[in-house]
């Protein structure tokens, strides 16, 4: 298996710079997730690692060896795509075995590798079907199986769950986490969904417009965001950003997670009006409106009732607040 090193990699399409001189190390066996809003360059970065996109500058090294000059098939990587990308004219067995066949492996070795991978993913009954005869979830499992068969040093996933429905997404997510444990392989996973990032990652890389905003474990990012972008991106529902001056605090912005706001009908720091209530059973999300702070989200445990437009008071737990300066940088 291998550690991945990106040093000063950049990519431009014509005049637009999509990846701006990025350095990153993914340790051997680590599950690294690139997360960021759509269009921030996650897929481009992943395709550069895979060799599907030329680098405009910098180097990619896998297992201590520079791979940026090698063609994709020689990089000892495997990739799983959002749209599955199974070969429509081949059976599941042939789809999974193609890479080994191209590499000139013996029939017996290919069969053994396909059998092993299909056992891991319970694909046995479908081996002789064509992709058109499979459901979406099964197709994505075949695509993952196709990656496993190659025994790559590095797995690349580009939003593999985006085309699945909610229930399948959770099931497949758990399956990918299990595969990572069983295989111990290095994996790089791209998603715009922070829940996927939080649940799967050993290390999250938050990207914005081709620049790394912060790198860290899910809990590091959650408990110690470096700026308002990361603070707003990680955690659901989103963090509230309050104007610090109105609360007599230093800094420009006070970031407070929805669970660290308390709601009272009688007294508190901020007088606001209830704008919307979402009851989720175990918890209730109350959205309140305030002229100066804007729309705030309050997360309460259990069931609560609030009338629309009712007057309420919101109080932030100032010991749990994150302070940011005018540029959005964290201040301590």
């Amino acid at each position: 298996m291998g550690a991945l090193h990106l040093s000063n990699v950049s990519k431009s399409f014509g005049k637009t710079e999509v990846i701006k001189g990025l350095d990153l190390t993914v340790q051997d066996g680590e599950f690294c997730v690139f997360v960021g809003p759509s269009g921030c360059g996650k897929s481009t970065l992943l395709r550069m690692i895979a060799g599907l996109e030329d680098l405009s500058g910098g180097d990619v090294a896998l297992d201590g060896k520079i791979i940026s000059t090698l063609p994709p098939a020689k990089r000892e990587i495997a990739m799983v795509f959002q749209t599955y990308a199974l070969y429509p004219h081949l059976t599941v067995r042939q789809n999974m075995g193609l890479a080994l066949k191209q590499a000139g492996e013996s029939k017996a070795a290919i069969e053994a590798a396909v059998t092993r991978a299909s056992a891991m993913l319970e694909l046995g009954p479908y081996l002789d079907r064509r992709p058109a005869e499979l459901s979406g979830g099964q197709r994505q499992r075949v695509a993952i199986g196709r990656a496993i068969v190659r025994r790559p040093k590095l797995f690349l996933f580009d939003e593999p769950l985006s085309n699945l429905d909610a229930a399948l997404r959770v099931a497949t997510r758990i399956e990918i986490a299990r595969l990572h444990r069983d295989l111990g392989a290095t994996m790089v996973y791209v998603t715009h969904d922070q829940v996927e990032a939080m649940t799967l990652a050993d290390k999250i890389v938050v990207l914005r417009a081709g620049v790394v905003e912060q790198v860290g474990s899910p809990m590091e990012l959650y408990n110690n965001p470096a700026n308002t972008f990361v603070a707003g991106f990680i955690g659901s529902p989103q963090m509230n950003f309050l104007k610090a001056d109105a609360l007599g605090e230093h800094g420009a912005t006070l970031g407070i997670r929805p669970e660290h706001l308390t709601l009272s009908p009688l007294h508190g720091d901020i007088a606001a009006k209830v704008s919307h209530v979402e009851k989720l059973g175990g918890e209730t999300l109350v959205y309140v409106r305030h002229d100066h702070h804007g729309l705030l989200t309050v997360r309460l445990f259990g069931e609560h009732d609030f009338a629309y437009n009712a007057d309420v008071f919101v109080t932030p737990d100032r010991t749990r607040a994150f302070r940011f300066n005018a540029e959005g940088k964290r201040v301590r």
Binding site: R47, A50, G51, L52, P71, P72, A73, I77, A78, M79, F81, Q82, T83, Y84, A85, L86, Y87, L98, A99, Q102, A103, R146, D158
Partner: peptide, 14 residues
């Protein structure tokens, strides 16, 4: 034609 499909082929060495 899906880019992913062509890219999958490239990674598999076609």
């Amino acid at each position: 034609v899906s880019d992913d499909l062509k890219n999958a082929g490239r990674i598999d060495g076609l």
